[in-house]
């Protein structure tokens, strides 16, 4: 029986499709550029005038125009979305909060990581093994994931997160350390309660009680 060898398929580095389908993806422009840089032969065979003419021949002109118009719209939208996301990433900051549990014991709470596509569970696990403490992922009052690490390791955690962000090419993201003393928290609670009675029963912004 003759051996059938696997066919090598070249995938686009931007949208992960085989390059011939890039035109239907949401990042066509970047795909095209990427392909030109990375695989010139294939680029020529797909985007030469001849090939393009062939591709459009079986559909009526109007239909073709309509489809490409819609696609363009979508692609523009996608690009705008990417841009927005990047902006959001740059604008957001990571907060490392040190919370006093009793006089000598602290936990730190890391929030604001969710926009960076970081696997929280995995990161918690790494923290746990790195600092030899307990670390877990919980939802905070705003229904966002955050990591709680036991023990005062905020400096080390900060360094680690900064390194992590640097690897992703996001140097400008701020990592802020905060301190949350018990006394402060009580004061904040009291203030909230006072505000509540003053405004007449409008629920206060959710408090972090941990």
């Amino acid at each position: 029986m003759s051996e059938i060898l696997p066919k090598e398929v070249f995938y686009c580095g931007v949208c992960t499709f085989p390059p011939e389908y890039c035109e239907f993806g949401l990042s066509f422009k970047r795909c095209k550029q990427w392909l030109q840089e990375n695989n010139e032969a294939l680029f020529d065979s797909i985007y030469s005038d001849e090939a393009l003419a062939n591709a459009t021949s079986t559909l009526s002109v109007e239909k073709q125009a309509k489809i490409s118009k819609e696609l363009e719209k979508k692609q523009a939208k996608e690009e705008a979305k990417l841009e927005r996301e990047l902006q959001m990433k740059l604008a957001s900051k990571v907060i490392i909060k040190r919370i006093e549990r009793n006089k000598r014991k602290h936990v730190i709470e890391i929030s604001g990581l969710e926009v960076f596509n970081i696997d929280m569970k995995k990161l918690a696990k790494t923290f746990a093994s790195k600092f030899a403490t307990g670390a877990s992922v919980t939802k905070n009052a705003e229904k966002k994931d955050e990591i709680v690490v036991q023990g005062d390791v905020s400096d080390e955690a900060k360094a680690y997160i900064e390194k992590l962000l640097e690897e992703k090419g996001l140097n400008e993201v701020q990592v802020v350390q905060e301190d949350d003393k018990k006394g402060k928290k009580k004061a904040a609670l009291a203030a909230a309660a006072a505000a509540l009675s003053a405004t007449g029963g409008v629920p206060p912004p959710a408090q972090k009680t941990r």
Binding site: I4, P6, K7, E8, V9, P18, Y21, F24, G25, A55, T56, T58, L59, K63, I67, E70, L71
Partner: peptide, 22 residues
């Protein structure tokens, strides 16, 4: 499927359908 394209039954759609299939 991309590696062993000949091993599976195949059908083909026209160009107008690609967008919707994707």
């Amino acid at each position: 499927v991309h590696k062993y394209p000949d091993c599976f039954p195949r059908v083909q759609v026209d160009r107008g359908a690609i967008k919707f299939v994707l």
